[in-house]
Design a binder for these strands. Sequence first.
DNA 1: TTGTTATATCGAAATATTTCGATGTGAGAA
DNA 2: TTCTCACATCGAAATATTTCGATATAACAA
Lengths: 108, 108
Amino acid sequence: MDKFSNDAKVFKALCDVNRLKILELLREGEKCACELQENVDIVQSSLSYHMKILVESGIVESTHDGKWIYYKISQDGSDKAVEILREITNVDDKNKATHRCTSKCLVK
Amino acid sequence: MDKFSNDAKVFKALCDVNRLKILELLREGEKCACELQENVDIVQSSLSYHMKILVESGIVESTHDGKWIYYKISQDGSDKAVEILREITNVDDKNKATHRCTSKCLVK
DNA sequence: TTGTTATATCGAAATATTTCGATGTGAGAA
DNA sequence: TTCTCACATCGAAATATTTCGATATAACAA
């Protein structure tokens, strides 16, 4: 199952409404954590938790500047995510041999 | 938060290793549940649970044929998922006004 | 009808994720 | 150094997801 763990990690970053809200904010441009904090309805430690997940997925990247951290959407990470999504949903036409069960499932 | 629920649903379908494994199997072409069952390490009721999530996300579609159900990757659903992913990670360049905090976070 | 097969649903347990408050760390200001 | 601010980490509670076994439903065969 480890083969899929990395893909799962990328999509896990995208399946929480708070993280989607954060991404929406970051679409406006780079923002510091405190600015995100203002616009999201969770406490500081929770925001920190979500930012870690977003950064580890590669979709968001961070820059440290003194005591602040600025976050922005990573073009590279986003492109990779799109690429993964395309890949995992891409039907390999060469192998498209559909079998049909008759009377009793043939597979068993 | 309801604005993001549908997007979250699509990505939720993709963040479980069993469902990713199932998608990989479906990339070979349409398959009946019993064939999927053979290749995945969960009991029947669990497979049924996962298939429901995949179908409800739109990424997989099902066809009923007598007592069998055939599943395949939905081209339309996959394209929509890719589109959503592009959209939520697309930085709006027009608004790209980055602000920097100085001395004390300006946002607060 | 009765039996068998394929799939769905339910309830409970196991597991994972999210949340918060408290506290830790590290940077810069005083 | 000491204080404050920004952010991270920890532990515990709350919540959500996943799993299984038991049972239900529906289709077809006998």
